[in-house]
Design a protein around this nucleic acid. Structure first.
Lengths: 351, 351
DNA sequence: AAGAAGCGTGTAAGCGCTTTCTCAGCCGCC
DNA sequence: GGCGGCTGAGAAAGCGCTTACACGCTTCTT
């Protein structure tokens, strides 16, 4: 109570602003919405009144009129999913959230498991509380995006959307990236290449595996199933997969791992077995997350632009919302191989 | 367009429900809000109309009247913060979100970095768009909780709140937990105990270090600064810290690590150095996350009830919101030592 | 010089809901 | 049998905002 301008009983309303600026409510509203048909004197008066009063528009009232919530929902899969534990997600949330805030949209976290029935979730999503939806970490052919899109709510999927879904998606060209990483290992003279993949029911995991095979095939090296192990994007899965690979093919000389998080664990296993990286075994990861720069030795990795992709997802969504154009679009971002010491390539000069 | 009940131009409103049920709007509203003064016949009629029409109340309209948003904001620190990468956070979000959904509240993610000025953030938080706020991962004495509380918005801090802040907090008794873990190592006959701590500007990290020291002191063992290393709750920090400890005191026989994520990494370093766990070095972690059960050997850890704590946070917040009682409260949860193989204690029987 | 056209502004209608106020109907009471 | 008290339900007033519409003023047209 003493020092602060303490919660006023009533918040400042647009009417207060208009009164102070000496204009009508309508003009005040027009200024707030950047309408072009308002005299610059009036605009300035309103703007200064807004600043002076610290006016923040009431979203509820605005929503009621515009039939928009200015909120987009991010659906996150069950927490039991080990994929969710990947730091990748936090970066993703954060990029999406930051971009949304720029457009004065709110980010709502939606947890499907808190709805007892799927119907409830769908109904909630379609009830106008959310202007658009981001769906992540889809397993296989989840029907949710299609269902939501069918109800007229814009949806954008992170990663490839299930075939035939009326949803946009943004993805990285994982397959090419994986192929490039593998080709890079081959170019270092490695011939016994293994891979640790993610859960194969996720398109992104499958793409990375296919890219790995592509590169081997292009080099005329026959595929060896014993050199392919499934991690599930979890740390423990990676440890198990790496142990399995070393046991099955002790003479392997290179590994392509489908995520940096898993790659870091695989490196520890390799080193724990007495092998040197990259001398005995070369390693390339995927995602180019911060951890890639701090492993010992630093980890070569395939970078996909999380920020740019997140921004693109937001752009697609807002476009769709604001233009009312709900045709699905696909955007694929190129990946880039970042070579560090772990793959035995030329170390990049430190920047 | 073909198969679905497609987005109707107009959503179902309470008026539609009331008409179908043959009652007035007011009665419909009373049923929605569980008012006791409504005849059971009328109530049933309304309820069946709601089910039949799939009515979902319009939050905006409701907010406008009640001056509540039925949303609570979770403030997440900068993504650059390495702490944020800990899976702990996802579990935390998920527990909070699930609990909120039960109470028909929404979870809003708020990212401070997307506000160009601190003023904007505060103004936004205080403008009635959010009924209550959860603040996490505070570094040192962040003034934010106090500022927000001063504006009359209920705040609950995860972990100890800065001294003097008018905010509630929920924390685990980390100090006792750490002491118990350390005492357990001592009870195994270990005498050269090291610790890897978190960033010491975080109360929870400091508490764990203090608990470690408490137990040593209680056992009459002099503190040895060379046996204390600071990780920063990151994987890489843990690797560096463990390497440092082994270099400084090659004969150490036990380590207490302030998080399981770090402990898992420390275990790899220990094993990579040719030492056996628990024979040569016993390890105890903190958090009892899923990873503790899948390390090799399984990791002893200090469990704090994330779910229960998250629920308590939500409870405090909703109490405060609904009762209008903004007096700060503190709730401390006890921790529990979970003994697995890594500490050399008796292995628990597999369940 | 009178009407068309355009610009900037104000007036007022509502968005879908909650809640106060009012009142009809019914009980039991003296 | 008239009256207070009680219960349940309806009418209506907004909550703070956007926006269609109307309107006065200036600037062109022919």
């Amino acid at each position: 109570m003493p020092e602060d301008d303490k919660a006023n009983d009533r918040n400042v309303t647009l009417e207060d602003v208009a009164r102070l600026a000496g204009v009508s409510l309508a003009t005040g509203s027009r200024v707030m919405n950047g309408s072009p048909k308002v005299n610059s004197d009036a605009r300035r008066a309103v703007e200064s009144a807004i600043a002076q009063l610290g006016y923040v528009p009431n979203r509820a009232a605005r929503s009621l009129m515009t039939r928009r919530s200015n909120a987009i929902g991010v659906i996150i899969p069950a927490p039991t999913s080990r994929i969710l534990m990947d730091p990748f997600f936090l970066m993703f949330f954060s990029a999406i959230g930051t971009e949304l805030a720029l457009h004065a949209y709110q980010l709502l976290l939606v947890m499907p498991q808190s709805y007892d029935e799927e119907k409830h979730l769908e109904r909630y999503l379609a009830s106008g509380h959310i202007d658009g939806i981001v769906v992540t970490a889809l397993h296989g052919d989840d029907p949710l995006p299609e269902r939501i899109a069918a109800r007229g709510v814009p949806v954008v999927v992170s990663g490839r959307a299930p075939l035939g879904a009326r949803a946009s998606y943004v993805d990285a060209d994982c397959r090419s990236g994986a192929a490039a990483a593998t080709a890079h290992l081959l170019a270092q003279g490695r011939r016994k290449l293994a891979t640790i993949s993610g859960s194969l029911d996720m398109p992104s995991a499958m793409d990375r595996l296919l890219g790995f095979r592509d590169a081997l095939e292009a080099a005329g090296i026959p595929a060896d199933p014993a050199l392919e192990a499934v991690g599930d994007f979890s740390q423990q899965g990676a440890v198990e997969a790496m142990n399995l690979l070393l046991e099955r093919r002790p003479d392997l000389d290179g590994v392509f791992v489908a995520s940096d998080t898993m790659a870091a664990m695989a490196m520890h296993v390799i080193q724990g077995s007495g092998r040197q990286i990259p001398v005995d075994v070369a390693v390339v990861g995927f995602d180019d997350q911060p951890i890639a720069q701090t492993t010992e030795p630093p980890l070569s990795s395939v970078r996909h632009p999380i920020e740019a992709m997140s921004h693109e997802m937001v752009r697609l969504l807002l476009d769709s919302i604001e233009a009312g154009d709900h045709r699905p679009r696909q955007v694929i971002f190129p990946t880039e191989l970042v070579i560090r010491e772990s793959s035995g390539g030329l170390p990049v000069t430190r920047s």
